[in-house]
Amino acid sequence: MEATVEALFDPQIIDLDIDEETKDGVISHLATLLAQAGYVTDTTAYIQDIYFRESEGITGMGDNVAIPHGKSAAVVKPGLAIGHTRHMIPWESYDDEPVNVIFLFAVADEPTGSQTHLRLLADVAGRLGNEDILAAVKAAKTPDELKQALFQK
């Protein structure tokens, strides 16, 4: 189990210097990274599923962090795209503040044989509930620093 935590970490779907100013722009940017890296087959369909989840409830966790996600048939491999933005992005959040750290979860519609990955995504989500880990994640400047912050024991 522990060895596979690494499997979730993929620098191809991390961008710590995103130059977007809107929620649409950030979601589109991260969804495109997921598609380019082979996690998502149809960017448009995936984005629609993200917005369906957005319609069901707030994904801005507070503390300038958002966790948009969606189950989508367009996802062929579960993954976690991570972005830091240069600008504060307006986002519906629990503390009514904008966000600059975004974790975009990609989860397949029918999770066959991907239980391990879902477990890992759940594990990462749990870590985001820990203030100390979250602070380290927000301070990370490189994918390596981010990896250490997120997967620290």
Partner: peptide, 18 residues
């Protein structure tokens, strides 16, 4: 338990425990 069962469920667990 949250709607999608992907993220909030697990974040909330951690927050309650802490």
């Amino acid at each position: 338990a949250c709607v999608a069962g992907i993220a909030h469920t697990y974040i909330a667990k951690e927050k309650i425990e802490k």
